[in-house]
Design a protein around this nucleic acid. Structure first.
Lengths: 237, 237
DNA sequence: GAGTGGTCTAGACCACCTG
DNA sequence: AGGTGGTCTAGACCACTCG
């Protein structure tokens, strides 16, 4: 199964944009040019170009052409749906790298949200991950899970590489709410190293508390986001 | 000049979704049904449906159909409710100082969201405010309003010192939605001066687009938040 | 006026899901 | 097996921009 033609054309054009063959501000070949050049129908070309628009590589102007414009795009990361779900829509290469855990570890001394006695005595499963978009590290995520009979997590591999999907499938736990606190901070050594930034660069820091369908079971995260290339987008209704 | 067919179809379907003719979780008529029902080509139907996907009214599933899904909505403190509502909870003295406008000004050359021709030709009402919590400046807010017959704003004083309440009372316009993009940036001279920070300190920057009950009328804001003392909180349901 | 992207048609075959 | 959305073709006319 090879990918559809419009995706292949999309990838070829994207590569030429990223590598500078088509420079910022330049015009792409016209749709008719691309049609004859790649021997596909015009609507196939238009599908490829529309993907490039969606992903923020070009703008189209009627009567002018398709202009290379790699502006900052935003991602809907403020939702609780989880990173993969959110990014799946955007047709980007999204990946997650586990750099630590899941492993049983002690709770931090001064935890960022107040823990209950039950949570403290249950102990903590700790997990450290980096999120990539098109091979750029955009988020460092430290996750803290009260160990209410979840030690099995430390041995298992994740469903779809997703913590939330794993909890759902293996333990029937679903996340249904979150609160979060956002701050702009400067990257420390660890954050800058993991997000390929310079120490002192501004990063978006988020504390999160996830609520789940299992009563009293909450998950905590501390996130650091590199927002240079991708802003954090959100919708409210 | 009537709008294109796919937009008209989009609007009709949207109305039926919003009014409940097509209920949450239901399937829309299939693309072939819509093709014969509205007497247009299938690609026209698909254009309309793709707009509905983009705007979050439906999800498509191959082999199944187009499923009505307007679920994403959430309330929260990052919401459109306005500064006073958000801060009201915290039991602090909150105040707002107008430092510029409201006044008629030209639109910025490269505006942070794409403006329509109508917005551009209507011109811009500009407004610059600082929000204080216990006499600490925590937010610098630059607001841009398309001047669709709102010149009166420049002379009036605000109801409760609130722009949104004024729009509501005087023009019957209500804000009912927003999208926003967040970034961590370093404070420039202007921001640091207004928020009593040092140049280069990290600040949270937010671009906002507010949607209102008046069609095609949107309000734009650019916010800078000093998060050293107060984090920005939000809830998602 | 020539060239661009925007809209639209009327077909076709495919991959996928469900009964 | 039958229906769904996904991909694709080969045309057509239109609105827009620019020299």
């Amino acid at each position: 199964m090879s990918p559809p033609q419009y995706i292949m054309l999309y990838n070829q054009l994207k590569r030429k944009i990223v590598t500078g063959t088509f420079a910022e501000g330049e015009l792409l070949p016209s749709e008719n040019k691309l049609t004859s050049e790649y021997q596909v129908a015009r609507s196939t070309v238009r599908q490829a170009l529309n993907e490039l628009v969606k992903d923020g590589y070009i703008n189209k102007k009627q009567g002018v052409g398709s202009i290379v414009d790699r502006s900052v795009k935003s991602l809907g990361l403020l939702s609780f749906k989880g990173f993969s779900d959110v990014m799946g829509k955007v047709n980007k290469n999204v990946s997650t790298r586990n750099i630590n855990g899941p492993t049983i570890a002690p709770w931090m001394d001064h935890f960022f949200y107040k823990l209950t006695k039950e949570e403290i005595s249950a102990g903590c499963i700790f997990l450290e991950r980096i999120r990539f978009v098109d091979n750029d590290p955009v988020m460092l995520e430290l996750t803290y899970i009260p160990n209410f009979g979840l030690s099995g997590l430390c041995q298992s591999t994740f469903v779809n590489n997703s913590l939330f999907q794993t909890l759902n499938v293996k333990y029937n736990i679903e996340v249904n709410n979150l609160t979060q606190d956002l701050r702009a901070v400067t990257a420390n050594a660890k954050v800058s190293r993991n997000l390929q930034l310079t120490i002192g660069n501004p990063v978006l820091h988020v504390y999160r508390k996830y609520f789940t369908t299992r009563e009293h079971f909450k998950i905590y995260s501390s996130l650091f986001c590199n927002t240079n290339k991708y802003a954090i987008g959100s919708n409210h209704g």
